[in-house]
Design a protein around this nucleic acid. Structure first.
Length: 479
DNA sequence: TTTTGAGTTGTTCGA
DNA sequence: GTCGAACAACTCAAA
């Protein structure tokens, strides 16, 4: 009897899971293991919203394994020692996993792999969570791409890869001792998670259903629809991808299918594929430049005079800035653990450019509050907005929250949904309530400074201030 | 080899 | 009302 261990981490799925698939092919008994050791990931241990998701995703995975006569073995404590104990208990001769790319996890895995091999244990690692292995897409100088379009072109030239793998056929029986998911204490102690339950269903089955309904209903108009926060025009797949309940290959497979069946135009498909491309670009960047999580990639920005304004930061976090589109987004985030992509750009531009707060502060808040918190994408995108990242927004690109609100939420549906206190205000004043005349404020019961906060800063002045400071950045020799 | 042009997501100002 | 220019500096590939 050949026994092996599959160490599951950010790949909480049975379908298209190369580690699980190959383990099952090559062994009689597969022991699926989840080891809880968040301290090994510091300073980027998972935040509160993603702990909530993980609790439910682990539960779903456990149920799915039970249905196949197996189970998920959950352990707590240092990964290496836990694996050592499991190997002793099972007599396993091999450990399988899918690669992680976060610097702390990657370093840990490398040590553990070396240590296991020293013990005579086989190690098999796969790139199951990406379309292209980091390091495999380089420019002609054999350096990482710094611009998205040539990066993605180079990826597409390699093709879209193999179709997804089926779930494993047989895993064998597993009777090992296991902790319960509850024992990991991932759920919040204060019940703030009501909105998460009403907006999300974690787990592989829900992920696959979401992918299907996205292809059937949303993909057709994705190119335009994804920009309107008041409409369900995005895929809403991000948390499923972040936890590996779904692989990017499954995403590719599904949209290609939809296209082949003439249910979708090429533009919707290409737009979605390039969104997956940005995800790849972020992971490749994290692999090549692990400092992206904390340090600006453009060294000029090391000297930038960010401010530290606790009052502004708190107003931003709580959705009390006085700018409806910002406040709607920040409350959507707090309430549901997710924010529409366009609104993420608007609130990030507001914090870093109008507010001059360091992008790391915003990234940290997102890390704690997003159910789709993903270190590669989060770090990459915050740097992109702040202007210090790869292929970044130029310093003069400062989103005007009022213009954006008028353009992308013209009927105010998104604002009304998240800002009930503005419900009585006519559409004319909804994007700029502070400009409403006193008598309108009075009759509509939207008194600025009483029912809804006054603007926390002056858009025009703060924009000019930012332009001045960013333009003045000293140029330094390139690294 | 050198040059040229394009490059996710914007705003404002003046003609 | 619409339109183009200005707001930098750099990366990468094609000509």
């Amino acid at each position: 009897m050949k026994t092996c261990i599959v160490w599951l981490r950010q790949d909480l799925r049975l379908t298209d899971n190369p580690a699980l698939y190959h383990a099952a092919q090559q062994s009689d008994v597969v022991v699926p293991v989840y080891i809880h050791a968040p301290e090994e990931l510091e300073p980027w241990a998972p935040g509160a919203a993603s702990r909530w998701w993980r609790h439910h995703s682990l539960t779903a995975l456990h149920d799915a394994l039970r249905a196949r006569g197996s189970r998920l073995v959950i352990r707590r404590g240092a990964s290496r020692e836990s694996l050592q104990r499991l190997i002793r208990e099972t007599g396993a001769g091999a450990v399988y996993w899918n690669h992680l790319y976060e610097p702390q996890a990657a370093r840990r895995d490398k040590h553990i792999a070396a240590w296991l091999r020293e013990q005579g244990i086989e190690v098999h690692a796969y790139h199951g969570n990406l379309l292209y292995p980091p390091g495999s897409v380089l420019n002609k100088e054999h350096k990482p791409f710094r611009v998205f379009t040539p990066f993605w072109r180079a990826c597409r030239q390699q093709g879209l890869g193999d179709p997804p793998l089926p779930p494993p056929e047989s895993l064998g029986e597993c009777r090992l001792k296991s902790e319960t998911v509850e024992a990991l204490a991932l759920l919040p102690k204060i019940a703030w998670d009501h909105g998460l339950y009403t907006h999300w269903t974690p787990g592989e089955n829900a992920a696959r259903q979401q992918l299907q309904s996205f292809c059937d209903e949303t993909l057709q108009d994705y190119e335009k629809g994804r920009d309107l926060p008041g409409r369900a025009g995005t895929s809403r797949l991000s948390p499923h991808l972040a936890f590996g309940e779904l692989s990017p290959r499954q995403g590719v497979g599904a949209v290609l299918n939809s296209f082949m069946n003439n249910a979708t135009q090429g533009s919707g498909m290409d737009t979605f594929l390039s969104e997956l491309g940005w995800r790849e670009f972020a992971y490749h960047t994290l692999h090549h430049f692990p400092r992206v999580t904390d340090q600006p990639l453009n060294p000029r920005y090391e000297a930038f005079p960010w401010r530290n304004d606790q009052r502004l930061l708190q107003a931003w976090q709580q959705g009390e800035t006085g700018f409806p589109i910002i406040d709607a987004g920040m409350r959507q985030l707090w309430h549901t653990g997710w924010m529409h992509n366009r609104v993420r750009m608007i609130v990030a531009s507001f914090l870093t450019k109008n507010g001059l707060q360091p992008w790391q502060t915003g990234a940290r808040w997102f890390w704690d509050t997003l159910v789709d918190a993903d270190l590669a994408s989060n770090s990459f995108n915050w740097q992109w907005v702040a202007g210090c990242g790869l292929d970044a927004a130029p310093y003069f690109r400062i989103f005007n929250p009022v213009r954006q609100s008028e353009r992308f939420d013209p009927n105010g549906g998104y604002l009304s949904e998240w800002l009930p206190e503005l419900a009585g205000l006519p559409l004319r004043w909804l994007h700029t309530p502070w400009l409403a005349p006193a008598e309108i404020q009075h009759t509509c019961n939207v008194r600025i400074g009483v029912d809804y906060p006054a603007p926390t800063l002056d858009l025009n002045n703060s924009r000019k201030r930012a332009l001045l400071l960013f333009r003045r950045l000293p140029s330094t020799a390139r690294d």
